[in-house]
Nucleic acid binder design. Structure first.
Lengths: 332, 332
DNA sequence: CTGAAAGCGCTAACAT
DNA sequence: ATGTTAGCGCTTTCAG
């Protein structure tokens, strides 16, 4: 067994509480005693047991972060931002991946409860009802989904979708397609509604393809169906899907942006590396991560809760090479 | 405060120990009592406090995984494999990212001690000496680095480097370059030594560029220096660096594989998406993740320790489009 | 099969 | 400034 506070106390000839204070309230202990205790602790290799600490203080100084797929390059950016912010507040972030499985998600929240002071739910796939149950067990902040009663950090993906559609229409496209994300995704729904409205407002047409897995494979698989529509431009659920779609289209002999224009959402690093470089709706990932951590820490701090906070961060369109004016097949 | 075992005991008219047994040793309790306790627990929304549980049992059923940069696509694959394996063993994995900072790494190991039953150190940047200190505090398994006294899962990157050099030489290249990774990286050292030996054995020359940050930016920044060598082919520390290098070379007017051949290491998903598609040394990431978890769990299980285990997994070369025969500028 | 009691490692009043 | 005491929520002997 590892060395405990008791061992340190015995070896330095003081009571355990003095040792405890040496670490948690140094100013309350005689400098000499403190030095001695510290020396003994160092020598014995004493490490405070965070779990036991948490049991008495009720504070673990850890935050949990749950995301559906850590392999999606969108999340590491968010995670790093959250970590950076947490670090400044003397907190650590434990990350877990659900593999897009709601049951795993539920399990993880339960596991985190009591081991962390709060959990950041990034694009949760769990139903509102289940999520709501956990609200009383531990502080929760949701990123990229709106759930009644839960504080949230949203990225204005609807505005982004609007921007994207307007860009496409501005280029001369009249027949558009939307490649959706997975079933439970709040973002997918937001994009869909905003794209529909913006399309109607512009007097254009919108075909909808999906739901699809939010991965390259998902995009690649959607390629045939996209070609079956008469669309000349397509907005994708995210960059991964867009990249996969371009690959899939290429295999079917359609080139981007020559035959079709493609827009993604997220602005992951890869968007600048593919050929053609991807036009995309940039998400304020870093700001979202930092904001979410602060909201969570605030909840974990005060027992009193006002109405759940809601922050909406703006998105913006980044035009690269995957969008262009449509080729004119016929003269109208 | 959340509902505890005590509340459940009171509400179901039994002693706390019976409630405890209902969860941790159901067969020791009368089926009727069990059903009743379970019902009450469900109704009250009782959730066992894992931290308290761990305090008495010494088992948290959690594993920690520390990696230098979660944004490097190499790690999510490893993480997912580790998670999958852990899940089958009824364990959860908490991931933390050090941002390539050894001090953060140290801090994280300390934080994890006592909150998890063991830690997977993926490509640690910490010195052997510091790492060795932690060995007595909690079970540790190292991935991609060899440290005396610590069990490790290694990917045979030296063999991979050899394969890469032989491929290049086989294509007709005689002047090679190696773009290194970061300072503390064990892999970088392995690649360097293997590449040197293989180059010598083949009667070719090897210029060394670096150390470099193990990112796209690192590769991009290395481009000018690579061009300053007379190399016609270059092996990079990893795929990210290779992709960045290709980008950097492109900006300087050198094309791949026309002017230079480039090989990466890892075989991340992106390697198939860039143009040209990247020739690379594939790492057995999934096998490594699963193996590492099993080793860790075994250590956490038995108090008795044999000599530290060591598993070396094979790598292999995947030839795509970023390598080709050199153009002959002059007749020899 | 169930209750009583001790204790995991630590902190937080309360004394002294 | 330091020691005493009582728990945090749970498991685990040991009795009964």
């Amino acid at each position: 067994m590892a060395v405990t506070i008791r061992d340190v106390a015995r070896a330095s000839g003081v009571h355990v509480s003095t040792v405890s204070r040496t670490f948690s309230a140094p100013h309350l202990v005689n400098p000499e005693t403190r030095t001695r205790v510290l020396a003994v602790a160092e020598e014995l290799g004493y490490l405070p047991n965070r779990a036991a600490q948490a049991l008495t203080t009720g504070r673990t100084h850890n935050l949990g972060l749950i995301c559906p797929d850590i392999a999606n390059p969108f999340f590491p950016r968010l995670i790093k931002a959250a970590q950076a912010q947490a670090r400044e507040r003397d907190y650590h972030v434990f990350v877990a991946d659900t593999d897009e499985d709601p049951r795993v998600e539920e399990e993880l929240i339960q596991t985190f409860a009591k081991q962390v002071d709060g959990v950041l739910l990034c694009g949760p796939r769990l139903s509102n009802r289940v999520l709501d149950r956990f609200r009383h067990d531990l502080p929760l902040v949701v990123v990229n989904r709106r759930i009644r009663g839960l504080p949230a950090v949203l990225m204005d993906v609807a505005q982004g979708a609007r921007l994207a559609i307007e860009h496409l229409v501005g280029l001369g496209h009249r027949k558009l397609a939307l490649v959706l994300g997975p079933e439970g995704s709040w973002n997918s729904k937001q994009i869909r509604e905003a794209a529909r409205d913006a399309t109607i407002a512009a007097g254009a047409e919108l075909a909808v393809v999906g739901p699809n897995s939010p991965t390259e494979l998902g995009g690649q698989r959607a390629a045939p169906e996209v070609l079956r529509t008469t669309a000349t431009a397509v907005l994708c659920y995210n960059d991964l899907v867009a990249i996969g779609l371009i690959e899939g289209l290429d295999q079917l002999g359609a080139s981007v942006p020559g035959d079709l224009s493609v827009i993604g959402v997220d602005d992951i690093t890869e968007a600048r590396l593919t050929r053609p470089r991807l036009t995309t709706v940039a998400m304020p990932t870093v700001a979202a991560g930092r904001t979410a951590v602060d909201m969570l820490l605030q909840m974990a701090g005060n027992a009193v809760q006002g109405p759940p906070a809601l922050t909406t961060l703006p998105t913006n369109l980044i035009v690269r090479e995957s969008t262009a004016a449509p080729i004119r097949h016929e003269v109208s």
